[in-house]
């Protein structure tokens, strides 16, 4: 595994044999890499270098740090305040607020739009992320006009997790690729709950029973902090369920 995904530190030289080449597709650089013209590629963070030959792309896999918005990410934001035609939404603490127009909700018109009070949670997609401008969000797909699961999150509770765990939970096959099974296990134990995962390291959990919300949140944060594997996650779920009953 180590040979496949070598450790890189900022400024390390990348062995040219590791850089994928393709006849037609241009090389795509993901997070953690920097192109230094004319032809140098340098890592900017410490992590494992991952290359995808099929997509002709490479990136550095790492965990930690602060969320930096990028276009298309799903995030859970907290409404800070409302202006005349947009909400100011907080994505990460102590950073400039993102803007969420009042009209970018499903079926919203000037007369009917969701009334969000300061502190309300919203599940939104980042539409504009640019280092020189504050990010912009939307709760509706611009192409279809449908919410597609986005919108205000009512009830429930948000838990903070690491960016790495949020990324793993958002993977299409989080069990096989991300090695995260705790939510499936909790569901299999007969708990009814719904979750929303924000790329900014927030997980929202909602259920009819408050006990379930706390239990799911605790299971997720403990999995994150202790870096549990699939087998340990099963044990944790069993333990938490036993304690609850």
């Amino acid at each position: 595994m180590a040979a496949e995904h070598p450790l890189v530190l900022p400024g390390d030289t990348i062995d040219p044999s590791l850089i994928p080449t393709h006849k037609k597709q241009p090389l795509r650089l993901g997070p953690g890499l920097r192109h230094n013209p004319p032809s140098t590629i340098l890592p900017t963070v410490a992590g494992q270098l991952v290359t995808d030959l099929r997509k002709n792309s490479m990136w550095v896999e790492y965990n930690g740090g602060r969320y930096i918005p990028s276009q298309g990410d799903l995030v859970i934001g907290q409404v800070a305040r409302s202006a005349t035609d947009l909400y100011f939404v907080n994505i990460t603490p102590y950073t400039a607020n993102a803007s969420l127009p009042h009209l970018s909700f499903e079926g919203a018109t000037k007369k009917t739009r969701p009334q969000l009070l300061p502190g309300a949670l919203v599940y939104a997609r980042v539409t504009l992320a640019n280092r020189h401008m504050d990010p912009e969000l939307e709760c509706v797909s611009a192409t279809t006009g449908r919410a597609e699961g986005l919108g205000p999150l009512t009830g429930g509770m948000a838990f903070d997790v690491s960016l790495g765990l949020a990324r793993r939970l958002l993977m299409a096959r989080s069990r096989e690729e991300g090695g995260i099974e705790v939510l499936e296990q909790l569901g299999a134990e007969g708990l009814a709950f719904e979750t929303a995962v924000g790329r900014n390291g927030r997980v929202w959990v909602s259920s009819d029973s408050l006990k379930t919300v706390v239990l799911v949140g605790r299971a997720l944060t403990e999995t994150d902090e202790k870096g549990l594997g699939v087998e340990q996650q099963r044990k944790l779920v069993k333990k938490l369920i036993r304690e609850m009953r």
Partner: peptide, 17 residues
């Protein structure tokens, strides 16, 4: 020293890979 410290951290963070 720097490299080995980071290697431990990265391995722990990406144990699921």
């Amino acid at each position: 020293f720097l490299r080995s410290t980071l290697e431990t951290k990265v391995d722990a963070d990406l144990h699921w890979k």
